[in-house]
Structures are given as C-alpha cells and as structure tokens.
C-alpha cells in the first residue's frame, strides 16, 4: 500500500494525511506566497530593480550614439568622460567597455545605456571600498537597455565583464569614478 516500488492498491487518494504533514504543507504554501509577494512588491517599493526600457539597436546605430555621447562629454586629462547630461553609455566589446571611464556625481540619477557591439557580455560593477556591494547585468548585442542608477557614495567603481566573450575576457575592465555631487551632503 505504501511501497514506492509497488502499485498502490485501493483508494490511495483518500488515505488520510498525517497532521504534521498537513501543517508543513500549509507552511510551504505560505512561504511560497511570501517569496512571490515580496519579489513583486519590491518592484514597486524597492530601490534596486533590474528594470528599464529596452530598444532594438544595430551595431552601427549604437556606435553612433556612443560617439555622440563621447563628443558631447568633456574629457578630463585622465581620459575620463564627464557626461554633458544624464545619459551614460557603457557598451561592451571584445575586450573593453566603450564610454568608460566616466565621471559621475553622487545624488544625481543617470540613465545607463547598456549594450554590446559584438557578443554577449556581463556588466559587473563594484566600488573599490566595498566589494560586497556588487551588481551584475547581462548585455546582449542588438539591444540597448536603459537602466537608471543613482550613486550615493563617491569612489572608484570597477566594471568587469562576467560573461565569457573570448580569450581576452579576463582583461575586460574599466572604471566609473563617482565624485561628491554639488548637492551631495
């Protein structure tokens, strides 16, 4: 009747379920709803969501956009771009990030335009002062993904590629320099 290797006999569907088993089933359903509910609610109340508009884009269009961004930006002596507006372009290619290094300010919301000229890459970023504060977003060619970000701590943020993109993948590193903004505290 209750062997897993024999056909169960009789009306096995109506066999009673142990009370502790029933309690566990209730806990399981409850936990599953918490998991779902929190994830869903956080898209409305939370500050960290991998959500933003995506546009189809060809490699040439994207190159033009990044070029326009770089031309409009002021370039410092160290080669870092100071963007003219709120738009920032970070586009991966074998084996670096176009649009970087860039200088940003705390307290200002930037629209990050993430994309790729060639193959899939991983946008992986962490500040030098706290490695555990790291996030990772996937970039694919043909798509321009616009994710807003607002930094609240100044520092050097290191961008690595974390999707295999060829033998030079491991050297695909660049930086975002975040400086104290005018209205920063």
């Amino acid at each position: 009747m209750t062997s897993p290797i024999k056909p169960p006999k009789g009306n096995w569907w109506d066999q009673p379920v142990n009370r502790r088993e029933s309690i566990w089933l209730g806990l399981g359903v409850g936990w599953a709803l918490v998991l779902f509910g929190w994830m869903s609610a956080f898209t409305r109340i939370g500050d960290q969501n991998p959500i933003g508009e995506t546009y189809r884009v060809t490699e040439d269009e994207l190159r033009e956009k990044v070029q326009a961004f770089e031309e409009a930006a002021e370039q410092r002596d160290d080669g870092a771009y100071v963007p003219a507006g709120d738009d920032v372009y970070v586009v991966g290619y074998q084996f670096d990030w176009d649009g970087l290094p860039v200088v940003l300010e705390t307290g200002q919301e930037y629209d990050f335009h993430l994309g790729s000229y060639d193959v899939q890459h991983g946008f992986s970023i962490r500040p030098e002062h706290a490695y555990s504060q790291q996030i990772n977003l996937h970039v694919t060619p043909g798509k321009e993904w616009i994710i807003p970000m607002e930094f609240d701590e100044p520092g050097t943020y290191h961008v690595l590629c974390n999707e295999f993109c060829g033998e030079g993948h491991r050297g695909m590193h660049n930086t975002i320099i975040v400086e104290e903004g005018d209205d920063g505290e």
Binding site: I23, D47, I51, E53, E109, Q133, I135, I147, M149, D152
Partner: peptide, 30 residues
Amino acid sequence: FILCLIFLGVFVVAYVLNWFLLTQLWSIGV
C-alpha cells in the same frame, strides 16, 4: 517536522540576509 522547521528557519535567515545585502546598494532601475 523539527528538521523541516530548522530548514525553513535557515531559509528565512538566508533570504533576509540576501535582501539586506541588496538594499545596501545604490539605487538601480525604474
């Protein structure tokens, strides 16, 4: 039942810790 409750407890703690780490980050996304 006790073992499963321990499991659920660890699950909840790990969940809260992961979310805590995430909310320490700068603001991202719409």
